Computed example of a mutant assay.
Amino acid sequence: MNRFHVHLNVSNLDDSIRFYSQLFASAPAVVKGDYAKWMLEDPRVNFAISTTGRAPGIDHLGIQVDSGAELVELGQRLDAAGSTVVPEPDATCCYARSDKMWTEDPQGTRWETFHTFGDAVTYYAADSTCANDGTSCSPTAPAVTPDSARAGGCCAPASACC
């Protein structure tokens, strides 16, 4: 079953943890010095917050899937929607290891689709080409054109990453 994902940038992690813990009537499933995540069942959402240097507010939205096959299917749907799809295989981000695909909707809202398959001890990989600003896992904008992204199909990397 898919899970909706929301990631917010916050200015004060402790205050935000208190607020969202009350709102969700649940403590976060993961808490780090710069990050917290709730894996809620009602509503079914992966809700994450972080203090990683970006302006407070919505960082990105997404859909978390349970398998690689579901990620491929979702990538095909994104490709059919006409968006540039930027694959990010074996990414270390948000204290997890995942295969991801990034895109933007027509308004410029960033969308992350991903399948998580392991934990990580860092927020992002220090050598990640996607940590463009050194503080975030998500690319700020696709570095590939729609044509080059589709050259090998929706899920074929056009470059090493971003």
Rank of each mutant, 00 (worst) to 15 (best):
A36M: 00
A36F: 00
A36G: 03
W38E: 03
M39H: 05
E41Y: 00
D42N: 01
D42H: 01
D42C: 01
D42Q: 01
P43M: 00
P43I: 01
R44T: 04
V45R: 00
F47T: 00
A48M: 03
I49V: 05
I49M: 01
S50W: 04
S50D: 13
T51C: 10
T52L: 11
T52D: 14
G53H: 07
A55H: 11
A55W: 04
P56C: 09
P56N: 07
P56I: 08
G57V: 06
G57E: 10
I58N: 08
I58D: 08
I58V: 15
D59V: 03
H60Y: 02
G62C: 02
G62F: 01
G62R: 00
I63T: 04
V65A: 01
V65T: 02
V65W: 02
D66R: 02
S67W: 05
S67I: 02
S67T: 11
G68V: 09
G68H: 09
L71T: 05
L71K: 01
L71A: 03
E73L: 11
E73R: 08
L74W: 03
L74V: 10
L74C: 13
L74K: 06
G75D: 12
G75S: 12
R77T: 12
R77E: 13
R77V: 13
L78V: 13
D79P: 06
D79H: 07
A80F: 06
A80R: 10
A80V: 07
S83T: 12
V86L: 14
V86F: 03
P87M: 06
P87E: 07
P87S: 09
E88G: 15
P89V: 07
P89Y: 05
P89L: 05
D90N: 14
D90H: 11
T92N: 13
C93S: 14
C93D: 14
C93P: 09
C93E: 13
C94M: 12
Y95L: 10
R97T: 15
R97Q: 15
R97L: 13
S98M: 12
S98R: 06
S98H: 09
K100P: 09
K100N: 15
M101A: 13
T103A: 12
D105V: 03
P106Q: 02
Q107G: 10
G108F: 00
T109Y: 04
R110M: 09
W111D: 07
W111Q: 05
E112H: 01
T113I: 15
T113N: 12
H115M: 08
F117I: 11
F117N: 08
D119C: 06
A120I: 06
Y123N: 11
Y124G: 14
A125H: 10
S128D: 10
S128C: 08
S128P: 10
T129R: 14
T129P: 13
